[in-house]
Amino acid sequence: MLKTTYLLCASLLSVALLAGCGSKEKEEEKKDEESVSALGAVSAMKEMAEQAEEMQKKGPVDAVDFRTLKELLPADVDGLARKEATGEKNGAAGMVISTANAKYANEDGSESIDLAIVDAGGTAMLMGLAAWSMVEIDKETEHGYEKTSTMGDYKSYEKYDNTDKDGEISVLVAKRFVVTAKGRGVSMDKIKAAVEDIDLSKLAGLK
């Protein structure tokens, strides 16, 4: 369990160290920025390792039945009708996760949103699903942005491409549930609305 987490942390550190690389002319300008990124990755790696150790001590908890998670998926999201809803429960080596998925789209399919609720059951697998919850991200380009933020009381991660109108948002609830909405051909407001249509407080209370 810890080995998987350390590998994830190592990958995170590598990404942070390489993120600032560019042309020689920009190296000096980005030197301080890279140092901050590296320090942030080291801090995140330490926190992830500590959380993995805590999870190992407590042991995994039973993941919520995916049928219960499916009940929280809305019938429609901001005018997009639900086309299908599925669920499953999988596990190995003592790590079990439950997942509920739903697909939403307009009549011609030009606008669509995929919504998912995952219960990692308090295992280290959560570190892979929500590694972004351990770091601070804030990037912006002429085409879009990527950042960590909050939705209500919960840590969130979002990114959006203004050109293609594609984006996603993920929310970590009660340190075990990850809610993700991925949209195509829609605004970020519409993608966020999909998550807001889920009763996150009720989800947080599930055991």
Rank of each mutant, 00 (worst) to 15 (best):
V64M: 06
L129Y: 10
V179C: 09
G205I: 03
S14H: 13
A120H: 05
V96C: 06
A120Q: 07
S110H: 11
E136C: 02
D108H: 13
D161A: 09
E158G: 12
D197N: 11
Y157W: 13
S170I: 05
L126A: 10
L12K: 12
D199H: 08
K31P: 02
V42A: 15
A93Y: 10
E53V: 12
S149V: 03
G122H: 08
Y154H: 15
G94Y: 03
A92Q: 14
A131H: 11
A10I: 02
G87W: 06
L126R: 09
I191N: 00
K207V: 08
K46D: 07
S201R: 13
S11F: 11
T163I: 12
A52R: 04
E54C: 07
A92W: 14
D119W: 01
D78N: 15
A41P: 00
P60V: 02
C9M: 11
G183R: 09
I169R: 08
D119R: 08
N90T: 15
E54S: 12
D138L: 04
D153Y: 05
K31S: 11
K26G: 03
A10K: 12
A116M: 11
L73I: 00
Y160N: 06
E146V: 02
F66M: 01
S170C: 00
L17F: 09
K57I: 15
L115P: 00
K139F: 11
A131P: 02
K26T: 09
I97L: 15
E168L: 12
M134W: 08
K165G: 00
S35D: 09
T150R: 15
L115G: 04
D138I: 06
T148Q: 10
Q51A: 11
D108V: 09
L200H: 02
R176P: 00
A41M: 09
A102L: 05
D164E: 15
G205K: 15
E88D: 12
M45G: 08
L126F: 07
G183V: 03
A93D: 11
T4S: 13
G144A: 03
S35H: 11
A181K: 06
V36G: 04
G109R: 05
T68R: 14
G185D: 06
K175P: 00
N162R: 14
E146M: 14
D108L: 07
L203E: 06
D138R: 12
D62I: 03
K155F: 01
P74T: 01
M134V: 06
M48Q: 12
E84S: 14
K139P: 00
F177W: 07
G40T: 04
D138T: 03
V178C: 02
E168V: 07
G94R: 08
D32Y: 07
D114E: 10
G152L: 09
A41Y: 12
L12R: 14
K139T: 06
R67C: 01
L2M: 15
G122K: 08
D138E: 14
T148F: 09
S201V: 12
G40N: 12
G109V: 03
S156A: 15
K103P: 00
E25C: 03
